[in-house]
Amino acid sequence: MKSLQEQIAGLDVMLTARLGGASISLQPIPGSVPVIQVVIGGREELPIFITASEAQTLCICYLWTEAEVRGETRTELLEALLDLNPSIPLSSFGRVNEHYVLFGALAADARVEDIAHDVAALSDNALDALDALAHYLN
């Protein structure tokens, strides 16, 4: 099986082409599982993390934490996320510990072209979702 780095070779060039010439930086994150941080020029605050396991390749964008959710509209927010899930192309909402995330899941042996497509969609979707759902947050 290829390493994550080998799997995403050329991702930066493909993303630049997909995102209208935006600068892209790829940075491995040290730890016990392979993680690569993708920072997109102009959207530095919303990096995408790519991580690989035996079962799948995951692209994750951390949106907000539980502490940021306004208590009085929390149920409304959760319902909105469930309702939105099937409609958002390629990305789904989820939660890891206290982090709300938007993620795209691909096969473990996904091609770099597919990963680029997913990361670009995820970045657009994350920005859009933040804008649409910000009123549920403190």
Binding site: V35, I60, A134
Partner: peptide, 26 residues
């Protein structure tokens, strides 16, 4: 794997001195 990745990302952001901004700030 997802939990470990999130741990690595949190640790790394903590270690580099930068902090995850809150969503509205971002």
């Amino acid at each position: 794997s997802v939990y470990k990745a999130t741990r690595s990302i949190s640790d790394n952001i903590g270690a580099s001195g930068s902090k995850l901004l809150n969503a509205r700030e971002s």
